[in-house]
Amino acid sequence: MAYPEAMKGDGTISETVQKIATDVFFSAIEVTRVNDVKERNKVTSILESSRMKIGFGA
């Protein structure tokens, strides 16, 4: 787990996802809940425009 602070679904998850999406080391990301709707929409937008494989962990 590279960013365990994002596991609870709170905070600025979009900033963390942006860091991962722009890091060539990562080719995939697994996301779980994002509690805030606005933050969730930001994460969705970042991931839709990324080159990454995306998984969802409940």
Rank of each mutant, 00 (worst) to 15 (best):
E5V: 02
E48K: 13
R51K: 15
D23S: 12
F56T: 08
G57R: 05
E5K: 01
N41L: 15
F56A: 15
I13W: 14
I54F: 02
M1L: 02
M52C: 03
G55V: 03
E30I: 00
S45C: 01
T44P: 00
E39M: 05
T32A: 11
G11R: 10
E48W: 01
T12Y: 09
F26D: 02
E48Q: 12
F26R: 02
E30F: 00
A58C: 02
V43I: 10
E39W: 01
F56I: 15
T32M: 08
I29W: 05
A58M: 03
Y3W: 02
T16Q: 05
T12D: 14
K8D: 14
V31N: 02
I54N: 05
Q18A: 15
K8I: 10
E48H: 07
K38T: 14
K53M: 12
F25A: 08
I29M: 06
K53Q: 13
S45I: 05
K8Q: 10
F56E: 08
E5C: 00
S49K: 14
I46V: 13
I54G: 03
M52L: 15
R51M: 02
E48A: 05
E15F: 02
S50E: 10
D23F: 15
N41W: 12
G9A: 07
G9N: 06
M1C: 04
